[in-house]
Design a protein around this nucleic acid. Structure first.
Lengths: 224, 224
DNA sequence: TGCTTTATTCACAATTCCTTTACAACTCTT
DNA sequence: AAGAGTTGTAAAGGAATTGTGAATAAAGCA
């Protein structure tokens, strides 16, 4: 499922867009200010992001700039108020892929999103990296300091699930459901055991985890 | 005020629930059959609905299905008779958020309602900030001056409860009920201890609180 | 002020929760 | 069919959390 990050401070508009996107089968992540927007963009690596120009704190333009500075390939659609008198050329130079002027209809918004997604196409990031390890999703290879590490299917699935959901505490039940599926019902200790194996292979100090953190009483959290 | 729609064909039970809810400050809308229940649900968009499984006309299950088909986000609590041998998994898959087996105590019912409302509740705000701290509800992360602070489950639950009820004096009993729930009955000193821990972590001067204030003889009050 | 009630703080034990290890069952390969 | 690798689970040990009581402090009140 494609993820779209929406950075918009008007709460009601934000929610509207959120509902709209989810109806259309996207996963929508909503934030209200530039700072968290930028954080989310870097962590989530969404398939597309929509950025309001006028934002509290970090401005939309600043967010674009920093996203590009981080070499994220994520396409950006800018939302701007009519009054803003945007310099469109500047905007596109900043790295935006399209812009929509408020107020806009849902129909138009969706059309723009689809168009941008089509243009920028499905060249997903096939390699994810954190700390000293890189995961090549396409070839299903994990390297640490350039050296290949073997992963069993269960371990690898768990790892990629974490990669897709960084910085968020994931409950054991959620992990079981997502990685093992609805069909099988292993007990939740199983997750712990596998976390242990991940740590063994990927943490510099397996007993002082820096990436696969436990959130006591809740579950686990991966921080890249 | 939060509106709760009750769909229950047993008139006396229906009235009992109605009175109970209104005592607790909810607005209760009562109907006796599935058809009108569904109509009301779509028209009212209540904050929560309680649905009896056995209903004349449209069954409770059918109501759930249709409500979900209409993409209403309203949480649903199902009421079922002991004899009904409910398939809980099926129920939850149908879109119900919780179920209560008849006969139930009023205490239990209220607790369930509160729990569901809390779960599904106003988690629209993803990041809340006050003074130098920000709480990222989605990531369950609390930061102070940008630095992450660890919170235990009890502390975190208490904190978010305060965030959701700012500027209002909250009695210890209310806090216990809301945060700890109905299953456990810790004594009210427990709340004090936890308030202390919150202050320790979040107040600039823990012994001169500016956010987690005590209301002598009453309870506590959070001012952002 | 002195007295009573209420709140804070601290240390600690009970409990809950997590980690690790070992191992048996199971699945593939050969 | 044996062997190698994988996986779920149980059990033991360790760590973190949490409720409580007792000592102390603060607030309210006459």
């Amino acid at each position: 499922m494609q993820t779209i990050l929406v950075i918009e401070d008007d709460e009601s508009l934000r929610d509207t867009i959120g509902v709209l996107l989810e109806q259309e089968g996207f996963k929508a992540v909503l934030v209200g200010d530039g700072r968290s927007g930028l954080d989310q963009a870097l962590a989530l690596k969404p398939d597309l992001m929509m950025v309001d120009l006028r934002l509290p704190g970090l401005s939309g333009m600043e967010v674009c700039k920093q996203v590009r500075a981080a070499a994220l390939p994520t396409p950006i659609v800018v939302l701007s108020a009519l009054a803003d008198e945007v310099d469109k050329v500047l905007l596109l130079e900043l790295g935006a892929d399209d812009y929509v002027v408020k107020p806009f209809g849902t129909r138009e918004l969706l059309a723009r999103i689809r168009a941008v997604l089509r243009r920028t196409g499905p060249e997903r990031t096939r390699v994810v990296a954190f700390n000293e390890t890189e995961v090549d999703l396409e070839h299903r290879i994990v390297r640490r300091r350039g050296e290949e590490i073997k992963f069993t299917p269960a371990e690898y699935n768990l790892l990629t699930f974490f990669l897709q959901n960084p910085n968020r505490p994931l409950t054991r039940d959620l992990i079981l459901n997502s990685v093992w599926g609805y069909e099988s019902y292993p007990n939740t200790r199983t997750v712990d055991a596998h976390i242990g194996r991940l740590r063994q292979k990927l943490e510099p100090e397996p007993n002082v985890p820096r990436h696969f953190l436990t959130v006591h009483g809740v579950g686990y959290r991966f921080v890249p």
